[in-house]
Design a protein around this nucleic acid. Structure first.
Lengths: 208, 208
DNA sequence: CCTCTTACTTACTTTATTGTAAGTAAGAAT
DNA sequence: ATTCTTACTTACAATAAAGTAAGTAAGAGG
């Protein structure tokens, strides 16, 4: 018996910017998971319940989509970083925790890693070349250190180095942590990450 | 005028293992550069001056090739690591330099990063799950520390943490260093990397 | 010198994915 | 209501990459 096609629900039609936003969000998540090279328009579309041409309709080409994701993601990361810094910002341990959450946030580290590996560094975009979102962090940390130890002279380069160490170690831990621990026979998992962060914070505080 | 085809040079025919070795080497270099997802058999073959079917002849499928590269690369990294540790190994600063060269070596960090991001962790291969190549490093470092400070009691977990910090920070610096420095407005390039390493070594030594 | 294995080639198939073309209907504007 | 823009669909083309089939000749071994 030929079954008549089911009365399909009326087609949704979103305003363009919202559709774009949804696509960008899903694409960014996917990009953090599998990287720019393995991002498949069809997969993404299926996940969103649309056809892959809908994506092309909004972004033209796959490359444009990836570009838009990167653009938006770096802008958001910068915004988030500055808001994190503005939030409380005086106490050093809290500052460290906020930064750690930022870099350790599921996806953030992976996204940054994919971009770094793929050579999609912000210096290709001249607009971003001027903005230095991390500079505020260094200055905050430096102020906090000199405040805590008015007697000792603390060179700015040292705080600069320590800030870089924090960023690089946290990002590195998020990406390589469990791999390193696996190959040194240590405990792995989220608890190990927490322990690592705690010891790192302690090391930095103890050594000035 | 129809030109007669030039007398092509007699075909080279390598012994199988050497051919495999050459392919593996080129594939590993390419893999460190562009990652497993963007490794193209045709590109690789062109680079080697052979047809892409020659590669398939030796490795069956692309997946097998990538698997073989990963296998060989991790084995070599482990070997290289242990030989580096055996080389001198008593003095802490030299140990640090050797480790730094290991992780900072062009390609090593990128290769490890690609594998970590792609989820090609060694724990999928049961053979590698038992080997703990970095454990020796931790023990060496611990011995060196207790040797240098016989009066103070140094907990093993602390050395464990510091070893992880070194590994993670060096790898992270290799991948993220210039990106971080760019977004904090600092100097970039190899000199910055050297300076970072020097300060990291100093921090670890100064703090015990 | 002859033979046999196999490293490697050329020619072709298959498949996955991006992109094009054209049409459909949702929702705003008049 | 009617029209008009455009978000989105279905159908299809183009391309590139992996893999198959079959043949060729290099070099070892008798």
């Amino acid at each position: 018996m030929a079954r008549r096609p089911p009365p399909r629900p009326p087609r949704r039609r979103l305003p363009a910017d919202e559709a774009r936003a949804r696509i960008l969000e899903a694409a960014q998540r996917r990009l953090a998971e599998v990287g720019p090279e393995r991002l498949r328009l069809t997969e993404l579309a299926a996940e969103l319940g649309i056809s892959h041409q809908a994506i092309l309709h909004h972004f033209g080409t796959r490359e444009h989509l990836v570009g838009a994701v990167v653009e938006r993601a770096t802008m958001r990361l910068n915004e988030r970083m500055t808001s994190v810094l503005a939030e409380r910002g005086r106490d050093r341990e809290e500052l460290f925790d906020l930064i750690a959450d930022f870099y350790g946030a599921e996806g953030n580290a992976r996204l940054i890693a994919w971009l770094a590996l793929s050579g999609m560094t912000p210096e290709t975009r001249p607009a971003a070349a001027q903005a230095h979102p991390l500079k505020a962090m260094i200055e905050l940390a430096h102020a906090s250190r000199t405040n805590a130890q008015p007697d000792r002279e603390i060179p700015y380069e040292d705080t600069e180095f320590r800030s870089q160490l924090v960023a690089v170690a946290l990002l590195g831990e998020a990406i390589f942590g469990d791999l390193i621990r696996a190959s040194s026979g240590s405990q792995r998992g989220p608890a190990a990450t927490r322990a690592f962060r705690k010891r790192l914070a302690a090391l930095l505080v103890d050594s000035g």
